[in-house]
Simulated scan of single mutants.
Amino acid sequence: MFKNWLKKKNKELTLTAPMSGKGVPIADVPDPVFSGKMMGDGMAVDPSEGILTSPVDGEVVQLFHTAHAIGIRTKEGVELLLHIGLETVSMEGEGFTARVAVGDKVKTGQPLIEFDLEKVREIAASTVTPVVITNMDHVEQLETLVSGEVQSGEPMLKVILK
């Protein structure tokens, strides 16, 4: 009877651009796993620099041994996958240097992985770097805050949590 008396206010979380470059809608990522949102929803950046920074405060929960991708969990429980380029796992870590380890607490803007952008351009299928929320069951709504060119650290996505 009193359920609607006090309405719960949803929390918001802002994801910043993890690198400078061109913002790319997730639907335009040239890989059906990402564009079809099979891994989750988000956005991508086609980088103009070779450093991936944290888009949120959180904890590193996964770091691929090849350092081409990383998973971060926020205190709100949102889990992110940041995947540098497409088909970069085939590079077997060449040109990638992790600056963090699993279990590390990270702050927004903190360098996570440095990479040789020219080498990625030469070898990988694409340099487009998806930033995906992998547990969308925590998300009520996702709003894109940028289009076109983005700067590292600039607000990129607004997440309304359930």
Results as ranks from 00 to 15, higher is better:
residue 3 K to L: 12
residue 4 N to M: 10
residue 4 N to C: 10
residue 7 K to S: 15
residue 7 K to N: 08
residue 7 K to C: 05
residue 7 K to Y: 08
residue 7 K to V: 06
residue 8 K to V: 14
residue 9 K to S: 15
residue 11 K to A: 14
residue 13 L to Q: 01
residue 14 T to V: 15
residue 15 L to D: 00
residue 16 T to H: 02
residue 21 G to P: 01
residue 21 G to K: 00
residue 22 K to Y: 07
residue 26 I to E: 03
residue 30 P to F: 08
residue 31 D to Q: 14
residue 33 V to G: 02
residue 34 F to C: 07
residue 34 F to M: 09
residue 36 G to D: 12
residue 39 M to R: 05
residue 39 M to H: 03
residue 40 G to N: 10
residue 41 D to P: 08
residue 42 G to V: 04
residue 42 G to K: 08
residue 43 M to S: 08
residue 44 A to G: 10
residue 46 D to H: 06
residue 47 P to D: 03
residue 48 S to Q: 12
residue 48 S to I: 11
residue 48 S to H: 10
residue 48 S to L: 12
residue 50 G to Q: 10
residue 51 I to S: 14
residue 53 T to S: 13
residue 54 S to M: 07
residue 54 S to R: 05
residue 56 V to N: 06
residue 59 E to G: 09
residue 62 Q to K: 09
residue 62 Q to L: 13
residue 62 Q to G: 12
residue 68 H to Y: 05
residue 70 I to D: 02
residue 72 I to N: 05
residue 81 L to C: 03
residue 83 H to K: 13
residue 85 G to W: 00
residue 85 G to Q: 07
residue 85 G to I: 01
residue 86 L to W: 00
residue 88 T to G: 00
residue 89 V to Y: 04
residue 89 V to I: 14
residue 91 M to T: 03
residue 93 G to E: 09
residue 96 F to W: 07
residue 98 A to D: 06
residue 98 A to S: 14
residue 99 R to D: 11
residue 101 A to Y: 06
residue 101 A to M: 10
residue 101 A to P: 01
residue 102 V to C: 14
residue 104 D to T: 09
residue 105 K to Y: 07
residue 107 K to I: 04
residue 108 T to N: 13
residue 109 G to L: 00
residue 109 G to C: 07
residue 111 P to V: 09
residue 113 I to W: 04
residue 114 E to T: 11
residue 114 E to R: 12
residue 114 E to I: 07
residue 115 F to R: 08
residue 116 D to Y: 13
residue 117 L to T: 14
residue 120 V to R: 04
residue 120 V to T: 00
residue 122 E to A: 15
residue 124 A to D: 03
residue 128 V to H: 01
residue 132 V to Q: 00
residue 134 T to E: 06
residue 135 N to T: 11
residue 136 M to D: 02
residue 136 M to P: 01
residue 137 D to G: 06
residue 137 D to C: 13
residue 138 H to V: 15
residue 140 E to A: 15
residue 140 E to N: 13
residue 142 L to W: 05
residue 144 T to F: 15
residue 145 L to N: 01
residue 145 L to V: 03
residue 145 L to E: 01
residue 146 V to C: 14
residue 147 S to Y: 08
residue 149 E to A: 11
residue 149 E to C: 03
residue 150 V to D: 06
residue 151 Q to W: 09
residue 151 Q to I: 10
residue 152 S to N: 02
residue 153 G to C: 07
residue 154 E to P: 03
residue 156 M to D: 05
residue 159 V to C: 11
residue 160 I to G: 10
residue 162 K to N: 15
